[in-house]
Write a protein that binds this DNA or RNA. Structure first.
Length: 888
RNA sequence: GGGCGAUUGGCUCAGCUGGUUAGAGCGCACGGUUCACAUCCGUGAGGUCACUGGUUCGAAUCCAGUAUCGCCCACCA
């Protein structure tokens, strides 16, 4: 005699207590780390985590990224793939400096007061304080990252990858130093990329200013002028020409003459260029080559001088004469004032325009001429584009491939230098003779590559790299590149890059370009882009709007599993989603449902030994249904349809297993005439079903499933295969479909639904037992009804259930494939009659439709045979329904 | 100015390469304190799939155009 073991699950699931304990158990079991050797024959499955910023507090975007990746990783791990999910943290140079500068300000220090070395020391201390925070937050999400491989973009290995990469680019003539116009943030005091220069419409003013024409002696003619329109009068000091459209009759005579620049008296040629819009402003444009991208192009075409007038903090330089030292906006006011006094301010009007602001600090960005390091990207972009065009890397959703292509085709050289301190310093050294030496040696070059001058006469470049340069190497630098490490051989190229579509250009494009150049392989074969998580009204979440949902708060409240279900359900790649309370509640309710189903199963084990027993129809049915769910879920995960997978397992668990199967199982567990073996068999099937559902659900809701698995394993190790940890359990196989049982049970369920329907129509109290009769359509139906009657009775609360001929049936029946069923109680009401006639009408409409379809020779002739056969079958079913409804 | 996407019941969204009577969750109505769960169960109402044409035996799905909304890119100072 064996004793039946039980383990009680708490009446309520306490996520806040369970989740940390489960995570600790996984860590203790070292469950996230791939085996030391790849399992024989196993396919690799590798995701390199997009490294969150070291300064970043966890937001829903991180959470969604982590959830999608964790689902894929847990799934592949269960499948036995050689699975690695590698975590990282990004040093976020400009972002980190922004944060540290604010802290320093509170301490009464500044970047300058500390100087580069002390500033960096301070930064490293700051890093030590903050580096682990984001990882800890990811652990609360349930992210099963291999923490033993945690990487930081500023660690020594990354630094070497960066140096080696840059040296290779330099040697291949893909890195160069040159003068160009760049976006300058006067507050961060660095160059920023086009992508970091965020342009938004703002209201400004368009001023009209008179530039007097030059008389032969070079002095301004008080009676002749050309009026130019500008939104930035302070740039006047940098003007080197005035441009008009070549076909503009108003100005044709002036082309070739000269105007005089106010304040400075510089003579400006009046040139013709098609860049000028005749209809805008006055049709004449002041050309400021050093502070405007368009003007810069014009200047290059016309060989104009370029005069820089702004310093690092956007104060005017000596080039502005008396205005030198003035802030750009103060200067604007003074310039306007003085022009007005001189009578040369002709007019002003409000003007809507695009203003570029620094993505980081919001300061208005200033185009500025400077000498910078660039990456020549066109050859890199060509390869990166071909990889996607030719399908070696797929982007999901697919329409982003067009966006990607468009960007790659119009790409400009990448200004990679940043005038910041926190980051990887560009490994270039200058010799007094002007030679440049680039090296990947950690201590710098031994001598000038060109003239051999010793190292102590060389000076290193002070600029650092754009953060995205080290990020662009991430898929392989994290695995040991440039060394041929075992990890690199084993895990590269990776499989999936999952990230927000917002950083397709920032990051994905750069990884593609650099990955192909350095490794000759696409760094991943699938790019999964997720959308933005918005508030219930479709607004972007932001601190200033106060509509931010904090994932950690949600986790304390409803648990990580619930948040995962809420965020992932119904989510499609590339589509923004609105996160509402009802979704979050839905996630919480689902964990609760699962918990309670498990409580029921664990608590209802009959005190009997397991014995072989013929499986009941519900048991055969649920096995088949779960096999089908497994098949679908597997296909959906294989095709990265995460939302679809969540829907599939949700429906299988809640609808099929809980609402139908467990109710049916109760019938057999509780009926008085069941044998011990029957009960044991039913319970075992329920436990097996639960175990299967736990496996299917584990990637979505790892904590609650793991906790239930633990309890289930104690009670019934035979269904958990003795595997103590669900995270290590095998993903189920999809075999076991049983169409005959599905069909048989489908018929029975139709009878049950029909009777429930009649009850509601008749206003029968839900708890009341009602006598029901059913007239089987044939002998097989009669047999089915008799052998399965107990299920119909219990689920429809129909007792007694009589199976007999329909001689005495009333008009109101519930038609079903097994025959019409009716309540043997009370007299038919008016409602009944209305229902019946509505039902008849609908059936008739459908019969007509299908008959017409089948009478259409074009349909029968051209539609595939299986479609025609299906319609024939449907017609037969409808006609049977009609017979049953009408016979009364 | 270019490009991309969206438009499906009150709300949020699924509906892949065209093939049952277009689905789900929430909300709503009605009925339920049956010993897993009221964070639940059962039943139901509610949609001419934005509009107009076209292709097809068959269109929410493919094509063209229109309208509205959203996003990205871009050199009107």
């Amino acid at each position: 005699m064996t004793t039946t073991r039980r383990r009680e699950l708490a009446p309520r699931y306490d996520a806040a207590a369970v989740e940390p304990a489960i995570y600790a158990r996984w860590m203790e079991a070292d469950a996230f780390r791939p085996a030391d050797e790849p399992p024989p024959g196993a396919e690799p499955f590798v995701i390199i985590q997009p490294p969150p910023n070291v300064t970043g507090a966890l937001h829903l975007g991180h959470a969604l990224t982590a959830f999608v990746e964790d689902i894929l990783v847990r799934y592949h791990r269960m499948r036995g793939d050689d699975t690695l999910w590698l975590p990282g943290v990004d040093h976020a140079s400009i972002g980190a400096q922004f944060v540290l500068d604010r802290i320093l300000a509170e301490e009464g220090e500044t970047r300058e007061s500390l100087g580069r070395d002390r500033y960096l020391e301070r930064m490293w201390r700051f890093m030590d304080e903050t580096r682990d925070i984001i990882g800890e937050q990811h652990r609360r999400l349930g992210a099963s990252l291999d923490w033993t491989r945690l990487r930081f973009t500023m660690d020594a290995d990354s630094a070497r990858s960066v140096r080696v990469a840059f040296k290779k680019l330099w040697d291949a003539d893909l890195a160069y130093r040159g003068e160009a116009l760049v976006n300058w943030c006067p507050r961060c005091r660095t160059t920023i990329s086009d992508l970091e220069n965020v342009k938004r419409p703002e209201s400004g003013t368009l001023w009209t200013i008179r530039y007097h024409l030059a008389r032969p002696d070079g002095t301004p003619d008080p009676d002749a002028w050309i009026s130019v329109a500008t939104t930035r009068p302070e740039t006047i000091f940098g003007d080197t020409a005035v441009a008009v459209h070549p076909d503009d009759d108003r100005y044709r005579a002036l082309v070739g003459r000269e105007a005089v620049l106010p304040f400075l008296g510089r003579r400006l040629p009046i040139i013709a260029d098609t860049y000028v819009e005749r209809t805008f402003g006055t049709g004449a444009v002041k050309i400021t080559p050093a502070h405007d991208f368009d003007d810069h192009e014009v200047a290059k075409r016309h060989d104009l001088p370029m005069v820089s007038i702004l310093d690092d903090e956007a104060r005017l330089t000596d080039a502005a004469g008396a205005f030198a030292g003035m802030d750009r906006f103060d200067a604007r006011a003074r310039v306007l004032e003085q022009l007005a006094e001189a009578g040369d301010l002709e007019g002003e009007q409000p003007h809507e325009m695009l203003i570029g602001r620094c993505d980081r600090c919001g300061t208005i960005v200033e185009p500025r001429l400077s000498v910078q390091w660039f990456i020549r990207v066109s050859p890199l972009a060509a390869r990166a584009l071909a990889s996607v065009r030719e399908g070696r890397t797929r982007i999901m959703p697919a329409h982003f491939e067009k966006v990607y292509a468009h960007w790659m085709e119009n790409i400009h050289d990448w200004a990679v230098g940043r005038q910041l301190w926190w980051g990887h310093r560009i490994p270039a050294w200058y010799c007094p003779d002007g030679h440049i030496t680039v090296t990947d040696l950690v201590d710098g070059p031994e001598h000038c590559d060109t003239c051999g001058r010793p190292a102590d006469e060389l000076t290193q470049e002070t600029d650092i790299f754009d953060t995205w340069f080290s990020s662009g190497l991430w898929p392989f630098s994290t695995l040991g590149w440039p060394d041929a490490t075992p990890d690199l051989a084993r895990f590269y190229p990776t499989q999936v890059m999952e990230t927000a579509y917002e950083i397709l250009f920032f990051w994905v494009a750069r990884m593609m370009m650099l990955g192909l150049f350095f490794t000759d392989r696409e760094p991943f074969h699938t790019v999964y882009l997720h959308g933005i998580v918005r508030d219930p009204y479709g607004q972007k979440m932001s601190k200033t709007k106060g509509n931010v949902v904090d994932p950690l708060e949600m986790i304390s409240d409803i648990g990580a599993d619930a948040l995962r279900a809420a965020l992932v359900s119904g989510n499609a790649p590339g589509v923004d989603q609105r996160l509402s309370d009802s979704k979050l509640t839905g996630g919480r309710n689902f964990t609760n449902k699962l918990w309670n189903a498990a409580r029921f199963v664990l608590g209802s084990r009959p005190a009997a030994e397991r014995a072989p027993v013929e499986a009941s129809l519900p048991v055969r049915w649920i096995r088949s249904r779960l096999a089908e769910a497994t098949e679908r879920a597997t296909a959906q995960l294989d095709s990265y349809d995460i939302g679809g997978y969540a829907g599939t397992v949700h429906e299988a668990a809640w609808n099929d297993y809980c609402d139908w199967f467990l109710e049916l199982a109760k019938v057999d567990l509780r009926r008085a005439d069941a044998t011990d073996a029957d009960r044991a068999g039913t319970w075992l099937a329920a436990a097996e079903g639960l175990a299967l559902i736990l496996r299917l659900l584990h990637p979505l809701m790892p904590f609650v499933t793991e906790e239930i698995w633990d309890a289930l394993g104690e009670v019934a190790p035979e269904v958990t295969a003795g595997e103590p940890l669900l995270i290590r359990a095998a993903w189920p196989g999809a075999a076991g479909r049983d169409p005959a049982s599905e069909r048989a049970f489908g018929d029975l369920a139709a009878v049950i639904r029909g009777i429930r329907n009649l009850r509601t129509g008749a206003g029968t109290p839900a708890g009341a037992w009602v006598p029901v009769a059913i007239a089987p359509t044939d002998a097989a139906a009669a047999e089915a009804l008799r052998s399965e009657s107990r299920y119909v009775e219990a689920l429809a609360r129909a007792r007694p259930l009589t199976v007999r001929a329909d001689a005495d049936r009333p008009e109101t029946v519930a038609p079903s494939p097994l025959g019409p069923a009716w309540l043997e109680v009370g007299a038919p009401s008016d409602d009944d009659a209305r229902r019946r006639s509505a039902q008849l009408d609908e059936v008739d409409r459908n019969i007509d439709r299908v008959r017409d379809l089948l009478a259409n020779e074009a349909f029968v002739g051209k539609a595939p045979p299986d479609v025609v056969a299906r319609e024939r079958e449907r017609l037969a079913g409808l006609e049977e329904q009609r017979r049953q409804l009408a016979a009364g």
